[in-house]
Each structure stands twice: as C-alpha cells, then as structure tokens.
Design a protein around this nucleic acid. Sequence first.
DNA 1: TGTTAGCACTCGTTTTGATGGAGTGCTAAT
DNA 2: ATTAGCACTCCATCAAAACGAGTGCTAACA
Lengths: 349, 349
Amino acid sequence: MDEFELDDRKTKILNAIIRNYLKTGEPVGSRTISKYTDLNLSSATIRNEMADLEELGYIVQPHTSAGRIPSDKGYRFYVDHLMAEKDREVDEMKQFVIEHTEKVEHLLQQAAKILASNTNYATMVTAPSYQGNKLKFIQLSYVDEGQILAVIVTDGNLVKNKIIPVSGPIDNETMLKLNIVLNSTLNGLTLEEINLGTIARLKEQAGIHSDIIGEVLDTLSQMMLQEDDIRVYTSGTTNFFKYPELSDTGKASELISTFEEKQQLASLVTENLLDENSTGIQVYIGNESSIQTMKDCSVVTAVYELGEGVRGTIGIVGPKRMDYEKVMDNLKVLKNSLDGILNKPKGKT
Amino acid sequence: MDEFELDDRKTKILNAIIRNYLKTGEPVGSRTISKYTDLNLSSATIRNEMADLEELGYIVQPHTSAGRIPSDKGYRFYVDHLMAEKDREVDEMKQFVIEHTEKVEHLLQQAAKILASNTNYATMVTAPSYQGNKLKFIQLSYVDEGQILAVIVTDGNLVKNKIIPVSGPIDNETMLKLNIVLNSTLNGLTLEEINLGTIARLKEQAGIHSDIIGEVLDTLSQMMLQEDDIRVYTSGTTNFFKYPELSDTGKASELISTFEEKQQLASLVTENLLDENSTGIQVYIGNESSIQTMKDCSVVTAVYELGEGVRGTIGIVGPKRMDYEKVMDNLKVLKNSLDGILNKPKGKT
DNA sequence: TGTTAGCACTCGTTTTGATGGAGTGCTAAT
DNA sequence: ATTAGCACTCCATCAAAACGAGTGCTAACA
C-alpha cells in the first residue's frame, strides 16, 4: 500500500535523499538532489516534492532551514523497496575465518568480534537455545557423598552439567540402573517431548529412587529453559562513538549499558527466534525494536543454526543511518559460516 | 623513606589537598586549604608550602593559575600513610546479598554487578583459576561413535567437560577400565602434581588405549591452563562517564574497549594472583598498572578464595580520584562474602 | 626568621556579538 | 508544470570581551 502513495519521481527523489544521507550523514538539501539525480529538475521543483514527502512522513527537517533526513518510515521504505535493487559486490568484504574450536562459547565470541570489526557496529551473538534439540546422552555419576553429577549431552554436542545433592549414599548398581533407565527412556527426545507420561514411566522404573529422577528432570528443564541461560556475546560496543548521532555521552552510555545487560538484548532477539521459522533477516528501525534505549538505532538480526535444532541469533546494532546492504551481506556470510558448523569435519572453515 | 621528607605541617596540608580533591574533583587552591585546616595559616603561607610540595612531586598544577591536584606520588602517599588513619563506619554500605546459585558464573557476574552498583566504578571479577585445586572425579563416557565425553570435577565442585574424538569404537569394558585407572591414579592430585612419572604410569596401565589417555591429559592441562580460560566478568563500565576526567569520548571509549577485551584485564590481575599469597588488597595508581589505557585510572584488587585453592580476583577500576576507603571496604566485604562460599551450606548467605 | 597582606599577572571559562552559509518557502515569470 | 529570484530563518563558527580563580612575588610585620 505504501508504495502507491509515491509516484515514480517522488520515489527517485526519496531514494536519492536517503542514499545521500547514508553516505554523508548530513541533512541533504534540494540543490544537492537537483544535481544528483538524472531527473534534471531545478532545486525549486525538488523543494516542492520534498515538501510533499515531508507531509507524507518519509522525511523530516531537523530544523527550519536545514536539509531533510529520512524518517523511520523513510528508512523502512528504503529497506523494503529501494535497497534490494542494487546488486553489490561481496568480494570487498573481509572473509570470516572462524577457527573451529571445541568451545562453542569461544566460537560465538569470536563471531561477534569479527562481525564487529567488519561492520564497525556493535554486535551480539546469542548462544543457541535448546529449542527442538534432541537429547543424546545422559550420565549420572556419584562424585562425592551427598553429591551426584548429572551430565547431559544433546545433538550438536552441547554439554551441560549440574551437581545434584542427594540425601543418602547410593551404590554403584543403582547408579548404573538409573543411567540405563534415563538413557533408554529419554534419548532421542527433545525437551518438548518429555511429557507427564514419560515422567511417570521414568519414576516408576526408578522405584525407590524416583526422587533422584525428579531432581534430574528438574535440572533438565531448568538447564534447557532459555530464560536462565541465554548467553549473549557482544563486541564492538564502543563503535557507537563513531557515529555522532549516538556518540554523545548520554546516549552512548545508555546503549553500552544495554549491551552490558545481556538479558535485555536476549529478549530483543528471542522473539524473532521463536516467532519465525524462516531464516530471513530482520530489520528493526528505531522504535520498531522493543528496547527503548535503541530508539535512535537500527537493529538487524539473523538466525543461525549450528546444528539441527540448535539455533541462535546474530545481530548488529548501529545508527539508523547504517549501511544496511553491507550489514545484511555480512550477516548472511556469517550465518553461512556458522550454519551447521558443529556437524562439519574438524578444522578450518 | 618518603615520609621523612615531609614535616608534620606539609603532611597535613597534603592530606587536606587530597581529601578536598577527592571530594570535589576540582583543583584546590591555597585559600581553600587556609580555611579547611586547623592550622590557621594564611593562604600566602599555604602557597609557599604548596610550592614546596609541588617541587617534591606530590602535587601538580594543571596549568598556571589553577589550584593543585595530587600527583601519582601524592596518591600513593595518601594510600600508604594518610588514609588508614581514619576509622570509617561500614554500616552505611549496602550489604552484599549474594544468592547462592549453582552456577559459579552467575555468582561471579552477580558479584561484579553488585560491586559496581555499590561503588559507582567499573568492576571486574575473574573466574577462579585451578591453581592448586585438586581433582576429585574424572569420567569418560562413550557418547557417540567416534566421540568420548570427558567430565572433570575438582574440589569446590567446578565441573569441566570436553568432547574428545576417537578413531575406533570402544567397548564398555574398556571404558570402565579407563575410568578406574584415571580415577585411581589422578584423584586427589592437583594439576601441578601430575608429572611425567604419573603420565607414564597411566599410559602403561591403559595399554592399547594409551592414546586416549593422552588425549584426556591434554584436555586436562588445556582446561586448567589459565590463559585459555580465565573468564572475566565485568560490570558498570559505563560508570566511567560519571567522572569528567575519564568521560571524554576518547578515553572512555578506550577504557570500555579494554573491559571488552577481557583477556587484557585478566593479565592485569593474574600477576597478583600468582605473586602474592597474601590476601591483601592491591592498589595500582596510574602507570603502576600494566595496562596502558589505564594510566589515568586507579585499580584496586583483592583475591578471593571460593574454596580451597580455588582463587580468583575481584577488582575495581575508577579515576585516580576515587574513594579509596570506600572501595577497599567494599572489596573486603565482598571478599568475605565470597570466601569459602562453595563450601558453605546451600541457601542465602 | 617565619608569617602575612597586597598586588600584578596568568590562564581557562563563559558570554556576547558579528558574520557567513546553507537551505527553505513563496511569488511571479516562463 | 516548472523555474528563477528573493527574503528570511537558523545554525555554526569565530573573535573579542568580561570574568574569576589562583598564583608568585615583594614588602611589611611580629
């Protein structure tokens, strides 16, 4: 619907304004456009058109007697309709050489860092959620009196562990039995598939030690629950200082604080992880994102999939006047680097 | 030696200057001191004394016709000789209510956060090193074809795990045997105590599967090696903005970047973890710390001991003009809260 | 001899005013 | 419908001026 309220000429002018503003960061005036486009119109005509565009809400004037800059609506229009037109060369982009390390956390931290240094924006990478990830192996070990160690491995070789306190001592045979019961019942299931029936069956089989099973299951769900555990790796937060519109002390400080409060970031990103099964790229302009402090920023995110069902998000945060094309390209490339990396043979990618 | 080059009056004046500057953050002039102290001296006399103090290097003038501010040497003198004099009330300090969570990492992140909000400085907490920590339990599990899971538990219930790739399949009996060998040989040893003799004995016992033992040992040392794994939790980095002398874009940005590069912070803190067995509090003023970017800051650190041999560092970074007394008090209290927390009964502390 | 009052001087900060330029909106001519 | 022209607005920049805090020095004082 939006696109019909703009005729061809207005679209061209808007495009020119936005592209120009992305480049320079300065409000752009009618005279500039008059020369920039192939429309061969005088600045006066452009002025008239610009007045219209402003009335329609695509551009705004920081103050009288200044040029125009894109509004959120303008950016949105650009991202949705104007941007894709241009084919761009990916070869200029630095490659993502991600060392295939054992530690997922290192991997992700690294990814965040590279993305930040490539784009010059602040970046975040959320650790994968266990959504839909299958249990592969469970092991209980009697470590110490009163303490059992539960180790859980899922597809994609994500490992979690927790110490569970128990009251009495437990003999080896019981441990063995519990392990067998747990593994035979739960292996191959996703967390969502463990229902009351499964639990009842488990407890029955465990007999006298059903309390331990209970503990284990609690642990399981606690572990896999996202809230508790969505880790977010960030990098390049000081990049905010590179953009005058964000670099005044107050704003930058708020933004960096938000990045320190990883939990907030997680929430921003989680919705799109759940809502959307598509692996597309999401763009939030200004207030479109749910985080107040980012009202002067744009957020671009993508979902990666380390292994089957092991999905997380990568994202960048920068000024609204960001190089959307470059950012989206970078995200795509990084996403591809990460996708399925856990299942790939060891070594460099 | 230093203290002998200052007579009583100079000491008093220096003290007054520093205390005043700590409060206000403004260069302090002779007139202020003339009224502040009980010395009942005119500003002119103070001026003479100040000229002397400047020549001795305890104070400096930001520019002609400004008051004086303490030099690094001045701060050092204050911290070493002047500060302790005053007894302060701890009751004003907010308590550290640390929830005793299972996850050490949450615990430490929380500690950093509370410390930051208490002091209004940037804080860091390093995860404990394994220095001197004893192995308690090792378990190898055959998870998948070609993959063994190694789980290692140390005193203090720190758990580490790693997936080890193996070439051929391994039967249950072998696994059992390996586990017994590993545990019986290594339990109770610290990492440092595992020497070539131990290793040779292990491999011999393992027989045909000595390669796996080798892998496990590699993993062990890799895991416990500090370099690889000193995690640093930080908080309150945006507090730098609260102090004008640090809040200009350039400096603040550098500092925050340093806090993002956790590894650098780790190095700052590690030395004192190793060098010193005392549990005292370390103060680094300006260039006394090894990190260039912190030349305009003071760093105060303390060592905590979660469990026996499980030691890490807590520290705060702020302007040289920081409230040393408050900071040191806070560190002491936090240190006490953390000390031995792993061995304490579960629940609130 | 140590202390103090007084004064000239320095230097950073803040205020003020002037100037210039970029850009607009409107009107009248094409 | 388009354009040229013009008056007007507003911001940014710069320099000068006014200000104020604080010093160093000298000469007087106890």
